[in-house]
Write a protein that binds this DNA or RNA. Structure first.
Lengths: 228, 228
DNA sequence: TTCATGGTTCGACCGTAGTCGAAACATGCA
DNA sequence: TGCATGTTTCGACTACGGTCGAACCATGAA
């Protein structure tokens, strides 16, 4: 009857609690097995299997078979982007699944958004890179400046390796807790990896939280000062 | 059990066909009455009323009572943004509600995205403004340059009036058909209004399509040339 | 006041889709 | 080959929620 894409189909796919739990778990960026996702969603393996194949068909997920395991991950960054947007709407409407607690506090400070850093520290990183002239918006695309390239390399990121990949280097991603953009793309991912390699931060095993050590926090603030 | 916002609640709200139809209709940016939306969704007025109040509670809509009419609109630009993202996923997965036809062609060329111009011409406008240095990305925000301000004013847009409003002047919005950003925000809205005022284009009454006249198309291309 | 129109509430019906148990299938290991 | 583990398929149950008819409420016009 109507024109345009069938948004109800996709939204309904996301709109089931069990599936939403799995998708949220996959926002960690890690590929997870059917059993792990069943556990996350609080549902038996059979139902999880059914849900996962439907989301796969719907283009939300991609999978990789490895021996007798089947690993699922979000299909694209776009999917993660939409999920983050939905989180923003849900948070804005005051529909948190759990009232704000200590865990929530950590998530707002720093967390993994698919594969890059989000939350307060994510937006601070982005703002600081902008303010120092390391990244700039050229045309519709966020680009790394010459100074930025030098900085990134000196920071220990193998820029050439990133450039060789097809994936876009820089992208904006809207943060649900800060309601401002932060850095995504392969560079965003590289920054997070580098923070972990330097032992500035480590990922919480049980949630999306990224835990900075006191020393790491200090180094981070030194290198990425507030723009104002 | 899980941390974070309840995305299933919001997604399920969008995921019902009747509600999705109403939301899609509201992407035109026009405020519509209960009866009109019932018509759009192909459902009786009672059920429409129920759906609308639920979406209102969920923060997706806002409403305004006017006499015995009740007008509904999307609550914020963020909602429109997420809907556009969902359309992108649905289109990417090949789930169009109707197979591509002549109407679809027009939508891809130029359409209304909430209140601003989207589709091929929307992204062309944005790219051209960027390339000519009229807008630039400063920090995390898209800003109008001094030259841009002069241009906009000379084009007949009352910039002072826009600035006086609280709403952000420029924003990016991701286009589902082009898969690239275009200009949103109050300036995006103002451009579309100006195109209509100049009779370069008019809105299709029955769809989200924006129909450019041959003359309007030529003027548009002259003023907003391809960046390449 | 009376009437017409737009919207809401109530109650009942019904179908879809989420759920799980059981059994089959697949893969790796000994 | 046999066994253990991971995943899928099948079938049946159930409940949640979308739907509508009917009656009720609200507003504006005559």
């Amino acid at each position: 009857m109507k024109e345009g894409p069938d948004i109800a189909y996709i939204a309904a796919l996301i709109g089931d609690p069990a599936r939403a739990n799995m998708l949220t778990a996959l926002m960690s960026g890690k590929a997870l097995t059917v059993s792990e996702l069943a556990e996350e969603a609080g549902v038996t393996i059979q139902t999880a299997s059914s849900h996962l194949s439907r989301m796969d068909d719907g283009g939300l997920l991609r999978h990789r078979k490895q021996g007798r395991h089947k690993y699922f991950a979000l299909a694209t960054d776009d999917v993660a982007h939409v999920l983050e947007g939905l989180m923003g709407l849900a948070a804005g409407a005051g529909h948190l699944r759990k009232r704000t607690g200590p865990k929530d506090e950590k998530l707002r400070k720093a967390r993994v958004c698919y594969n890059h850093l989000a939350g307060d520290m994510g937006t601070r990183l982005y703002d600081s890179l902008m303010a120092q002239g390391y990244v700039a918006l050229k045309g519709e695309i966020v680009t790394l400046t010459d100074q930025g390239a030098a900085f990134v390399t000196s920071f220990g990121i193998d820029l050439d390796a990133l450039v060789r990949k097809k994936a876009p280097l820089c992208r904006e991603c809207l943060d649900w807790s800060e309601r401002r953009p932060h850095l995504a793309g392969s560079l965003g991912r590289a920054f997070l990896s580098r923070f972990e390699a330097l032992s500035w931060a480590r990922r919480d095993q049980k949630s999306r939280a990224v835990l900075f050590s006191p020393g790491g926090d200090a180094e981070f603030t030194r290198l990425f000062p507030f723009p104002g």
